[in-house]
Write a protein that binds this DNA or RNA. Structure first.
Lengths: 336, 336
DNA sequence: CGGCAGGATTGGCACGTTGCAACTCTGCGT
DNA sequence: ACGCAGAGTTGCAACGTGCCAATCCTGCCG
């Protein structure tokens, strides 16, 4: 039912090639034809059919972004970075959310392959590198945010999670804290790296290795943090840790909220460090010390790396120099 | 470079029609051909080209969702509702975010028209009904979430914002509060309706009309709430309102946080009511009384209304019976 | 053994767009 | 007056898919 080039051409009294030229090579058009085509397009409200364009072109000038869990604030920042760099380069960007489900993740990859996007930025749940290498054979390049096994065709953008964990640990130790609880998710490699960094700090300080108490939660959400906070609040003073390092800010916010509800003082009774430094970290009653992960910049870097590969397929994969962690100290560790 | 039906057909030793039949009408295939085609598809890793499919079909089995500001938690709930109902009906769903920018909103609509989606669910920024009616002429139906002028072709799903505002007002008045500050955004009609509901409650109680103090903020974010909270905290006891009604939960969370930082007691000194009842409302140090807006159900209703129109184009537009508001009372108004 | 029913398979076209090669036309130089 | 340059325009093919009508084949009945 919508108008096609043919309809426009008929109304304008020119051939469809001329209409196509008007859209894609305006400079070759004569003045009078251009005017006729312009009027006809306006009159019919013609909008080029993107599917036909893509079919003709062989692929769409589009990228895809697949996120582990789009509702976490950190992923907002990441996606804005990818989005901006895509828009600047004139690419369209399709989003999708794996919702922490491996089937959904695979389904999203399949869908984007069917839509012939040219490249994919993915923050993966499971090991997707073999699948991505398969896609690379078929001309779809990709960039993984996070650590991956070495690959000849799949690039990655790294953040120094372990170093960030170490910064958090050193900070807490320097404050004299000696019983540190780590709240994280063993199923996400980044969480484990952050824990390893904490262990590094403890080892370097020559402190007792049993000072770390690991608490595993399913999703790193505020809700999970509230549960953990309740458990900690119920502990006796003797068994309660004097510091908590949370694997992300959202779970830290939950812990903080629950501790405050129970009248436990932060940082006097328990010091608290989060991770990511999202906006929420300084929007809490006691502003949160956090390890800054530059989500926006990481997103930009991932998008830029992808676009570079697509623009110049002969270029080498960019060397994965990790983004450095930075500790942002606020009142949840040092008071006012 | 990727394989096409032709490649599959050549490898399987059958015609491309047979391959097409295998994919779309498996029952007409013979046993042996089916097996050959299956093997060839597997061997080549063939994935049908979605663009070509859509071109052939005339339109994609896809819907679009355009949100005013995807980062607000309320919109997560809304989008999950639309997403679920779309998936259940076998439709793909494309997301996009207007980011509170009218140009972006228009650009998104244009993009989805070019991609020939069959329908659009939109939570609009500006008045988009004329544009949507134009789309309806070209076969793209749409459903607006929120109030719209009467239209023959554009459906809407309504929520009783005014009634919700009234509930909040009645609640605060019944608690004996007499100086109510309203925090909202004049540029969003829903915010104004909520304020009007508050005024209704005050009028009905025969109370002084100057008891309402309207504070306008730009975006209804937590950051805006922090600013407002700071202003309120600096007021003298005499001029400080004894109740605050915020147009959404995020701004309420900001206000609450700032008040608590300044040692102002909630609800003893200032009672606080939010709007939407998102998850964050019960994840605060003092859980937030809020007017529940069933975002998930509203999203489902919008998606279902759209799919109904597409499935049966002769059906009348569904009557827009508004979703009712419900007050969820928590400690930010009644204490413990 | 001829014919025919009906299942299985195929050729060809159309969807809307774009790029290329080919064509027309105007005006200018010789 | 003739040719030619070059700007402007056009016809045609092709992208990958899906559907329709047409064809092929197998086996069975008379």
């Amino acid at each position: 039912m919508p108008a096609s080039v043919k309809d426009v051409a008929a109304l304008a009294g020119v051939s469809s090639s001329t209409v196509s030229n008007y859209l894609n090579h305006p400079h070759v058009l004569g003045e009078s034809s251009a005017a006729k085509v312009r009027d006809a397009i306006a009159q019919l409200g013609y909008v080029p059919n993107e599917s036909a364009r893509q079919l003709r072109a062989g692929s769409s000038k589009a990228l895809a972004l697949i996120l582990l869990d789009a509702w976490l604030p950190y992923f907002h920042e990441l996606s804005r970075g990818v989005e901006d760099v895509a828009r600047e380069g004139g690419w369209s960007l399709f989003f999708s959310n794996s919702n922490r489900d491996a089937d959904t993740e695979r389904g999203n990859i399949d869908m984007f392959e069917a839509h012939r996007v040219q490249g994919i930025v993915i923050y993966p749940l499971e090991d997707v590198v073999p699948r991505l290498e398969q896609l690379a054979d078929r001309g779809i390049r990709s960039v993984v945010v996070g650590p991956i096994p070495p690959s000849a065709t799949v690039a990655s953008v790294l953040f120094d999670d372990r170093g960030g964990g170490r910064l958090a640990g050193e900070h807490l130790l320097s404050l004299g804290r000696r019983r540190i609880a780590f709240v994280g998710t063993a199923s996400v490699s980044q969480s484990n790296d952050r824990l390893q960094g904490l262990r590094d700090a403890v080892d370097a300080a020559d402190a007792a290795t049993d000072m770390i108490d690991v608490i595993d939660v399913p999703h790193l959400t505020t809700e999970d943090g509230l549960d953990v906070g309740a458990r900690i609040a119920e502990m006796s003073d003797a068994e309660r840790p004097d510091a908590i390092f949370a694997a992300n800010d959202m779970v830290a916010v939950g812990v903080l909220t629950q501790l405050l509800r129970h009248g436990i003082r932060v940082p006097e009774d328990v010091a608290l460090v989060g991770f990511d430094d999202v906006a929420q970290a300084h929007q809490t009653v006691v502003p949160l010390t956090s390890v800054r992960q530059p989500g926006y910049e990481i997103g930009r870097a991932a998008g830029a790396a992808l676009i570079r590969q697509l623009t110049d397929p002969t270029a080498d994969l960019p060397a994965p120099t990790p983004f450095a962690a930075e500790l942002i100290v606020r009142e949840s560790t040092v008071g006012r």
